[in-house]
Amino acid sequence: EKTTAHGVPHIDQSRGVVKRTFWSFITAMMISGLGYNLFSISKLYFRYPVDVTVRLLHQSELKFPAVTVCNMSPLKQSAVDAAAKQTQVLSRKKRATGIYSFTKYGENTTTEAALHDVLLLGLHMIINIDQDDYVKEVGDTAGIRMVTHPQTRMPFPEDEGITISPGHSTSIGLRQVQIGREPHPYGNCTLPELKNITRNVYEELYNVQYSTTGCQRTCYQRNVIENCGCGDPYYPMHGAAYGNTKVLACQSSNTTQDDCKYNIQQLFALKQIGCDCPDSCSDTMYTMEVSLGQWPSNVQKDTIFTKLSEKMGDRILSPDYDYESNLIKLEVYYEEFNFEQIDERPSYTTWSYMSDVGGVLGLWIGFSLMTVFEFIE
């Protein structure tokens, strides 16, 4: 009789069958509406929805990314000839990766000064791809493959990079994009600072952070080792991710091994191999604006020849050296110190859910936390 909840006191205090039936019907309707409302908001809450916010921020200093440069030719003819002279069997060889890492830019006060200093302090390289030393059978494309990536992440030029051809001055303006994702239960990302060498062999071998690509390659290699009894020589074959077992590389001359590896590749490409490789909860990417110009210019060829001859020592370039086919001028710099930050945030938090539950309880039956103690009393 003393409870503040609506409906129940009216049923108890009603005199006569008609009034009691009326209030019983109204109370039942209100409880039905309450149940539907509670079901709706609970269904929304347990979906764990997120909102995505995009912000453009400014920072006086931005950490410069690592820059990985790879020659498009996986082998050198001189190395092949040397190996042949030593009667060594030339196995399939992975393209070598050179990594140039830089730390930070200096502080700048104005946008104009910042852009000017970035252009001066960015990465500048002249690269000789030595196309005359390409192996004819595998050198179908001349140039380099370049990737910009965080210094703590393993580069994968075949998947992430851009191709730069010789005979040009290539300027690459970078813009940083920071991505933040919500972990369980709002998402299925993994914290990059948590080491998991059984999921990503590159973390163990190169002391880098987790990446989805590294995890997928580890998963692929694990399936090759388990099913074929050998490892794909293009990827690491030893580590905790493979149970620290030592295996030999699959031989193309061994039909059984080669066919087995090919079948795993096809299953992996068709996504028929289950790999537990979630996205990283925090990641940094770089968008690139690429511009090209002729290099070297006709009037600067002699000057550039002199400077390169001084730096190359015993590999002095001849005056008729084919610049256009072998040399690349590369500039990498930040276009500006603004960066884009993309974050996931829970759009329906626990506190919001509790507030909505309290609201519908009060709306439909006038129920609150105080009412609970009234019933207990």
Rank of each mutant, 00 (worst) to 15 (best):
S282Q: 04
C228H: 01
Y234S: 14
M237Q: 07
Q294R: 02
S211F: 06
G293F: 02
Y202F: 14
R222A: 06
N244A: 02
N244E: 03
G214Y: 02
H238C: 07
C260T: 00
P233N: 03
Q266K: 14
P278L: 12
N223E: 10
G293S: 13
K271Q: 10
G243W: 00
T255L: 15
S291K: 11
N223P: 03
C215V: 11
T212Y: 03
Y210Q: 08
A241M: 05
S280A: 13
A241K: 02
K246V: 11
A240M: 07
D279M: 13
T213I: 15
S252A: 12
N227C: 09
D279W: 03
L248R: 11
C275F: 10
Q209W: 08
C228K: 03
S252K: 10
T245K: 08
C281P: 13
D276S: 11
Q272S: 08
C275A: 11
T256Y: 04
T218H: 10
N207K: 09
V208I: 01
I273V: 15
C260H: 00
Y206D: 12
N227D: 10
H238D: 13
T218R: 07
C275I: 05
T245W: 02
Q266Y: 15
R222D: 03
G274I: 09
K271P: 02
L248S: 15
S291C: 11
C260L: 00
P278F: 14
L205T: 01
G239F: 00
M288L: 11
Q266H: 14
S252T: 10
M288F: 06
I225D: 07
Y234I: 04
T212E: 12
G274R: 04
V247P: 07
S253M: 12
Y220K: 05
P236M: 02
Y210K: 02
Y262F: 15
G239E: 02
I264K: 03
T255F: 13
A241Y: 08
Y210M: 06
G243I: 00
D276Y: 09
A241Q: 04
N254M: 04
E226K: 08
G293N: 09
T212G: 04
C275D: 06
Y206W: 09
P278C: 15
Q266N: 14
Q251R: 15
K261T: 08
G243Y: 00
E226T: 12
C250G: 15
T245E: 10
